[in-house]
């Protein structure tokens, strides 16, 4: 056990920065975050890193490793060859603060723009009754740990800064889907998804699903079903006609 790994770490701030190479000891079964911590404790005490639980549950240690958005705590060193240089950079869709830490406040702004859950007024606490089959679609989306890797990888904003104001991003599409599928939510969120939150900007290239550490099927289970619901509301004359004639609510 134990070898010296070559780590290339981006260091800098919003003005400038560069990749710096370090040799760091790696132990058995270690993940990238262990190696970064060793680097911090032995060579670069002021290396800025955001992390928290180190168990893949809080979604803090999001970076890009060899160009791919990943969690440092869930990327094992034995997935790289011992002679391979491992490159770690901050997320590239958000402004950098220092070293591996980025400003992810974009996501918190977007969170505020999604109307919250609105329960039925006639039910008091303790009177909610929901079937397991009705909650489990939304439960999948509530597994989200808000690591924002999906937001980072989404080319709509990663490659087009100017789209940020009108695009909520995959994390918030699953939030909208979660609420739209919630058996007791009282709001209809479909139109707003398209008109205010930019669902139509998504071209379903599925990178969000690819990077999700919780393996949430963001595209197949949230974005596409929401796109289909948007079609019901906005683009499908037959469904529109049917709904108008029978005045049936989408149940």
């Amino acid at each position: 056990m134990g070898y010296l790994a070559s780590m290339r770490i981006w260091r800098g701030n919003s003005a400038d920065g560069q990749l710096e190479e370090h040799k760091v000891e790696v132990g058995d079964g270690e993940v990238v975050l262990d190696v970064i911590h060793r680097l911090q404790a032995t060579q670069t005490p002021d290396l800025a890193v955001r992390w928290n639980c180190k168990a893949g549950k809080c979604g803090s240690c999001s970076v890009e490793i060899n160009g791919k958005p990943r969690l440092m705590c869930m990327t094992r060193m034995n997935t790289f060859a011992e002679d391979e240089t491992v490159t770690v950079t901050p997320l590239r869709a958000f402004p950098v603060i220092k070293d591996l830490v980025t400003d992810v406040s974009f996501n918190y702004q977007k969170a505020r723009e999604i109307p919250a859950f609105k329960g039925p007024e006639n039910l008091k606490p303790g009177e909610y009754r929901m079937a397991q089959v009705d909650v489990q679609r939304s439960q999948e989306f509530r597994k989200c740990i808000e690591c924002f890797l999906c937001q980072d990888t989404c080319h709509v904003i990663r490659d087009h800064e100017e789209n940020k104001p009108q695009f909520a991003g995959p994390r918030f599409f699953i939030r909208i889907a979660e609420l739209d599928m919630h058996p007791l939510d009282q709001l209809n969120r479909t139109k707003a998804a398209q008109e205010e939150h930019g669902l139509g900007m998504c071209n379903i290239t599925k990178c969000c699903t690819d990077v999700c550490p919780e393996h949430i099927k963001i595209t197949d289970n949230a974005i596409i079903p929401m796109k289909e619901r948007v079609v019901d509301k906005k683009y499908d004359p037959l469904v529109w006609l049917g709904n108008t004639i029978s005045r049936r609510k989408s149940d």
């Binding site: 919250a116 859950f117 329960g119 606490p125 909610y128 929901m130 079937a131 397991q132 909650v135 939304s138 439960q139 509530r142 609420l179 919630h182 939510d185």
Partner: peptide, 9 residues
């Protein structure tokens, strides 16, 4: 639950 939590049922 009134805040939107979804427990197992």
């Amino acid at each position: 639950e009134t805040y939107g939590a979804l427990f197992d049922r």
